[in-house]
Computed example of a mutant assay.
Amino acid sequence: MLRRVEAGAAVVVCSTCRLSAGQREDGAGRRGGALLAQALRSIQASDSSYAAVEVQEMPCLFACQRHCTVHLRAPGKVGYVLGDFTPDEEAARAILDYAIRHAASDEGVVRYADWPQGVKGHFIVRTPPEGFVCT
């Protein structure tokens, strides 16, 4: 069930997420999570400044009441689950912009003033790094 991936800064995309709150797939049968992963990789391929963040996919993050969810993580840092994105390049760029700031931070905390507009209102949960709790 588990597949080893490189440790490091990553955006883990729920590849089986719904397209939207009311729609499971697009007209071609593609899930929103798969489309979001594709958009993230497209943006990443077009801009080398995003190379420090790995885009990884996994089926189901168990956030099924939401759609197009991602988990931002990096070793020793607070992680975040975000959702309710439109699976397009605008959302992908905002996610990657936040992920770069998250990876560059000391503990995974990015000042609100530095959040890209496209991630505001999308946070679902924060997760403490292994061996820590937040104060």
Rank of each mutant, 00 (worst) to 15 (best):
M1T: 11
M1R: 09
R3K: 15
A7C: 02
G8R: 06
G8Q: 04
A9C: 04
A10F: 00
V12H: 00
V12F: 03
V13D: 02
S15Y: 05
S15F: 01
S15I: 08
S15G: 07
T16Y: 06
C17A: 11
C17M: 06
S20M: 05
S20L: 03
A21E: 14
A21V: 05
G22T: 13
Q23I: 09
R24T: 13
E25G: 05
A28S: 15
G29M: 05
R31H: 13
R31A: 13
R31Y: 12
R31G: 05
G32W: 04
G33K: 05
A34K: 11
L36R: 04
L36P: 00
A39F: 12
A39M: 06
R41T: 10
S42D: 12
Q44E: 10
Q44C: 03
Q44A: 14
S46Q: 15
S46L: 10
D47M: 03
D47Q: 08
D47N: 14
S48Y: 11
S48W: 11
S49T: 15
A52Q: 12
A52Y: 00
V53P: 04
E54L: 11
V55R: 03
Q56M: 14
E57H: 08
E57L: 11
M58C: 07
C60V: 09
C60Y: 10
F62N: 15
F62E: 13
A63H: 03
A63K: 05
A63G: 10
C64I: 09
Q65D: 13
Q65S: 12
Q65I: 01
Q65V: 10
R66Y: 15
C68M: 00
T69D: 01
T69M: 01
V70L: 05
V70G: 03
L72G: 03
L72E: 01
A74R: 01
P75N: 08
G76C: 00
G76V: 02
G76I: 04
K77C: 05
K77M: 01
V78R: 01
Y80G: 07
V81W: 04
L82Q: 08
T86N: 10
T86S: 12
D88P: 00
D88L: 07
E89H: 02
E90K: 15
A91W: 05
A94M: 10
I100V: 15
R101S: 03
R101G: 08
A103V: 02
A103R: 07
A103T: 00
A104Y: 09
D106H: 10
D106K: 14
D106N: 15
D106P: 10
G108E: 03
G108S: 12
G108A: 04
V109D: 00
V109W: 02
V109R: 02
V110H: 02
V110P: 03
R111P: 13
Y112I: 07
A113M: 10
A113P: 00
D114I: 05
P116M: 11
P116K: 04
G118T: 08
G118V: 09
V119D: 01
K120C: 12
G121M: 01
G121S: 01
H122E: 09
F123D: 09
I124S: 04
R126D: 14
T127A: 11
P128H: 06
E130A: 15
G131C: 09
V133S: 13
